[in-house]
């Protein structure tokens, strides 16, 4: 947003507050708008700062570990046709890239990246033993990708560092693409409500 647009926005906001009789309550808001650096600092503190960002990334890394395991185990199950397996391996590669990016950032921030669980644990937790057909695998993957996209979008507001927030936007959009491909493969319609994630 440009500075002039900000000023226009501020003016219209003040006018609205005066007209609605909420001018007194608006004094604090206008003061905050007039000091963006202070507001940003307060936001960072409120969000937990760098330590909070590491916590968000650790959760994301755990999610990526689970996704990698799911694709690897399902890929080796013999349930997928070669064409579907090819797509699954592309998605697996994306998740491995996500894992590397998150682990690297966590280490740069002084954290110890969370380790993956065992395959046996993932098989139990995701009930992978119940998968009997390719359709079962694609249905599970669709659900996990949708959950991951929502998880990433839903955590962006908690991130204080802009570059980490951008990474989460990238993670979310990758998962959204995976979901869209899988959802289409299942023959499901695209949901009609606006804002499919978040």
């Amino acid at each position: 947003m440009t500075k002039s647009k900000n000023i226009e926005s501020d003016n219209s906001r003040r006018g609205f507050l005066r007209q609605s009789g909420l001018a007194v309550a608006g004094v604090g808001l206008v003061a905050a708008v007039g000091a963006p650096a202070d507001a940003a600092k307060r936001r960072r503190v409120a969000r937990g700062g760098a330590q909070g960002d590491v916590g968000v990334m650790q959760g994301a890394l755990a999610l990526e570990h689970e996704g990698i395991a799911a694709y690897k185990i399902a890929g080796a199950s013999g349930l997928l046709t070669p064409d579907v397996l090819k797509v699954a391996l592309v998605f697996l590669g994306h998740h491995e890239g996500h894992r590397e990016a998150l682990a690297s950032l966590i280490m740069k921030a002084g954290g110890n990246p969370v380790e993956p669980k065992t395959d046996a644990e993932y098989i139990k937790e995701l009930d992978l033993g119940a998968l009997k057909t390719q359709g079962d695998v694609v249905t599970l993957a669709t659900r996990l990708e949708q959950g991951a996209a929502n998880a990433y979008v839903g955590q962006i507001a908690a991130i204080s560092d802009n570059s980490t927030a951008k990474l989460f936007a990238q993670l979310a959009t990758d998962e959204a693409v995976h979901w869209a491909v899988l959802n289409g493969a299942l023959g499901n319609a695209v949901p009609t409500p606006t804002f499919l994630f978040g």
Partner: peptide
């Protein structure tokens, strides 16, 4: 729940 929480949670399994 499935859409927004299902990335990390299940009813009957401890996951993320």
């Amino acid at each position: 729940y499935e859409a927004k929480c299902g990335g990390c949670h299940s009813l009957d399994s401890n996951r993320v």
